[in-house]
Design a protein around this nucleic acid. Structure first.
Lengths: 159, 159
DNA sequence: GTTCATATACTCGGATATCGGATGTCCGAGTCTTACCGG
DNA sequence: CCGGTAAGACTCGGACATCCGATATCCGAGTATATGAAC
């Protein structure tokens, strides 16, 4: 799994902490987490395309949450960054090669291996879909939110 | 997720169908599924290192299951092919960059995001660990096992 | 002092390089088979 | 005819290339802001 997932989640949490009053630029977030600015921007664009973030162009622009934290599940963020397709792709190798040349063979029944893997992945997705950003915020200590807010406020006035 | 997982699982199922009487060579399995022989061999070696398969070198050599199918879970095969580390690696980016330079900040409490992701991944692993090769065999139609056995027997006598 | 036009700086968005790991290939070590030779 | 021996063929195991996607970077489009001049 690409590290962009961690980036996206942390950025969403940070944006939730900072509130919707003003957008936050990529450079600010990248400085806060010590990440490559342009690449982080690319990932945030994916979140925008997924409808999780809203971007405002121009000076004093940046990103903000497009929805309230209760309406953003971890599954949404992961799917936006990693793409919609499943981790385990069944290539149906049972249908290829000499094993498939048996004339009487038919493949109407789905591959049992793919079914089992899909079941596990569904459990994973269900667990992620059951957790929202609001849950993460509630679990984090309030002091972390305060410190983060303070840092972003300081940086804004300091420049 | 690499496609080697699908290869390993199908090969394990096939080896379970064929029984333990004689080992099956990589070339035979690769021909059956139309896969690159040497690369499949590389992946089967990983299963050997994990103790899932047993290899017999020399002529008439090959692979066989090292344990009965009831004692091999899908999690075992996936972990053997994909490696032991988790899919989501928490890089602790919250501890890097300007956000970590606040002197009063401490990180004794684990990252809530990592905790949530770990929980989802544990659900995935639990689901995979709950399914054994025997379950896959039981779910598959008996005709498939018969056809596979017949093909491997024919190919052996035909050469 | 107020208003408007213009220059400017800042930010998002996508097109373009670069790098690491998965994918694919090849050759050597080891073992079983088998043919051959001697008794 | 039987046993021993040596050559041969087959297979696993690991070392060596190759390719694709994630990672990283750069430049253009667009907008809010600040500045200056005109009234």
């Amino acid at each position: 799994m690409s590290e962009g997932v961690e980036w996206g989640l942390h950025c969403c949490v940070t944006l939730a902490w900072l509130g919707d009053d003003r957008p936050v630029s990529t450079a600010r977030l990248a400085a806060f987490f010590d990440l490559p600015t342009a690449y982080l921007n690319k990932r945030l664009q994916a979140l925008v395309r997924a409808g999780i973030l809203a971007s405002t162009p121009g000076a004093r622009g940046g990103f903000r949450l497009a929805r309230p934290p209760e309406a953003i599940t971890l599954m949404d963020v992961v799917a936006a960054v990693e793409g919609p397709d499943e981790a385990f792709r069944c290539m149906e190798i049972r249908q290829q090669g000499a094993g498939a040349e048996l004339p009487e063979r038919d493949f109407r029944q789905p591959c049992g291996i793919a079914t089992a893997m899909r079941r596990a992945e569904l459990a994973w997705r269900r667990e992620l879909a059951g957790q929202t950003l609001a849950d993460i915020l509630a679990a984090a200590p309030a002091a972390s939110a305060d410190r983060t807010r303070r840092w972003f406020a300081l940086e804004r006035t300091g420049s």
